[in-house]
Design a protein around this nucleic acid. Structure first.
Lengths: 128, 128
DNA sequence: GACCATCTACTACAGTTGTAGTAGATGGTG
DNA sequence: CACCATCTACTACAACTGTAGTAGATGGTC
């Protein structure tokens, strides 16, 4: 049931707020994302319904209010999004992404440092 | 006009074939992607029209046939997709992606090959 | 126990995406 | 120059996305 969990952009925003702290009510989630979205309350509700339909969140009634919690983990969603991105833009090859990162993207000094470390770790791990 | 060029999954497939070699006719593009998509000719045509509408490809009539060529470069499209992905999944921080890469993703042989090259380049660049 | 603030349920509606069909134009070939 | 294979132009249509409105249920408060 929780197979390939593809989230739309708006759904990512809601999930982001929900991953931050759960369970949460729709109103709470709206408050958390108010700074970035300026949505109506009903927009959050609709997205939560859709997320529930696709099995990404669950809800539990307390009083007259639904409390939501994520079913899909952030990591899981990230991995799915990562795969989709890599598949379309780099034909599935993570190496292509690394290449792109190394030569195309403007990285901060810290990113560059981290990338170098990452690459080295990966290569070392490999040769072990 | 060629600002933020967002491509859908299907559009990426067509662009992939077009980036491989241009100019090309719709029929040629269909043949190139036949292995992976099993689309009807008209599907390719429709996608090409949409891509033209959004300024991603241009076309030129020769005889009764349109010849298409990319306006948006693969690099440009990749950067846009990269940004979109990073923004939603890692809140815009490339570091988050690197982290993810280092601990979550398994690399194929091909990935590792590319990676070694990339690493060499990075190191050389650094020592220059 | 009535009322109000607030919640859920149902509905809406335009834009994008995936995936094509059909009809009418037309260039090359005999 | 007629015909056919093939092209383009126009149209289609359901699913998914972004973004909500409205009406009716309901739990807490006086």
């Amino acid at each position: 049931m929780v197979g390939i969990m593809k989230l739309s952009d708006s759904e990512w925003i809601v999930m982001g707020a929900l991953w931050a702290h759960a369970p949460a009510t729709a109103r709470e989630l709206l408050e958390r994302i108010e700074a970035e979205t300026d949505w109506a309350y009903m927009t959050v509700k609709t997205l939560l319904t859709r997320l529930q339909d696709k099995g990404a969140v669950s809800s539990e009634r307390r009083g007259k209010t639904d409390w939501f919690r994520p079913i899909v983990s952030r990591d899981k969603a990230t991995r799915t999004a990562f795969r989709a991105f890599i598949d379309r833009a780099f034909d599935g090859a993570v190496g292509g992404l690394l290449h792109h990162l190394a030569r195309e993207e403007k990285l901060t000094k810290r990113d560059r440092e981290l990338l170098r470390r990452t690459l080295r770790e990966l290569v070392e791990e490999e040769s072990r």
